[in-house]
Amino acid sequence: MTDFSTVSESTFEERSFWDRLGAFIISVLVLPLALLDGLLSRLQARIGIQRMGYWFILPNLLIFGTFILLPMLLNFYYGFTGGTSILPQNRTWVGTENLSALLTCEDYTRPLTCTEDLFWRGAANTVRFVVIEVTAIILLSLVTAVALNRRIRARGFFRSVFFYPVLLSPVVVALIWKWILQPQGVLNSLLADGRPIPFLTNADWAMFWVIVVHVWAQMGFYTLILLAGLQAIPKDLYEAASMDGANEWSRFWHITLPLLRPTMLVVLVLTLIRSVQVFDLAFVFTGGGPGTATQFLVQFIFQSAFDDRRFGIAAGASLLLAGTLLVFTIIQLRVNRSSLDNGEG
């Protein structure tokens, strides 16, 4: 008998729950849908069945094109133009001036000599944050998922407790922790005698807590994904290994880890893409402070654009960020493909 269990969570009862919720949602939407009946059947009579496909896509495409695709293209224009006006017609072409301003330093070992030293500060902070946060999230969610996958009582309860913070708004999460970490907060009254520890006003402490709070708020999501990956591992592999005398640790090392690799890769890329964009939680939590100790790239973009009206610099920085995300994605596709090839070969 193995210590791992594969629990099929998609029960019949669950399926009927999603069915019922879906039926309720459709009943809410039915009125606007029914009202369009006459209009759209006249349209169909005029243009024929096959071209109706375009009309079904149209509303989504309009919104998507206007608010996602067009801005993506405009972003390049902003990145290569200068001036303080947000209106495209009032901006002057400057070529790669914004990008080179962002990337120029007199001495690359000293960030303060860079033309845009805040950009470099933000980039350095982001790299530090990403490396530690992603490592911590992957390790902790793996341990938690393995623990939740064992034969335990109250699995659903534990799973929900670890997942709950994922649902909270970043603003709420930031306030929960800010309240605990205040100078007169509960953690200081438990730990310090008289002199409070400057949790959010000391540069190193602030970065430490920004990372802790992000891990706290997000690890439940990745735990769930890893748990699903664990449950997809065939149970008989473990049984065969136990018969051959493999102990729990070697079963984990030789069966669980290799078979979980694809899921771990998904988690790695998701956490990377997300943590590079770190902004809202930290913005409410520390405001980037003390000083610029927890100021990240997206905050630099946000403040250059909306506080300083340096739209060219901001767009240039977001192009660089988008480029980084693209590289991550390409790496993921490559790695995924090679891991698939290995699996087949």
């Binding site: 293209l73 972003n75 901001a314 977001s318």
Partner: peptide, 25 residues
């Protein structure tokens, strides 16, 4: 069309803040 849509899954709001704000305004 489907591919273009999927590829924007990777582009977060934070990257297109300025032009998106322009369009909205």
């Amino acid at each position: 069309l489907f591919l273009v849509m999927l590829s924007t899954l990777l582009v977060p709001v934070s990257v297109i803040l300025i032009p998106a704000f322009l369009v909205v305004s």
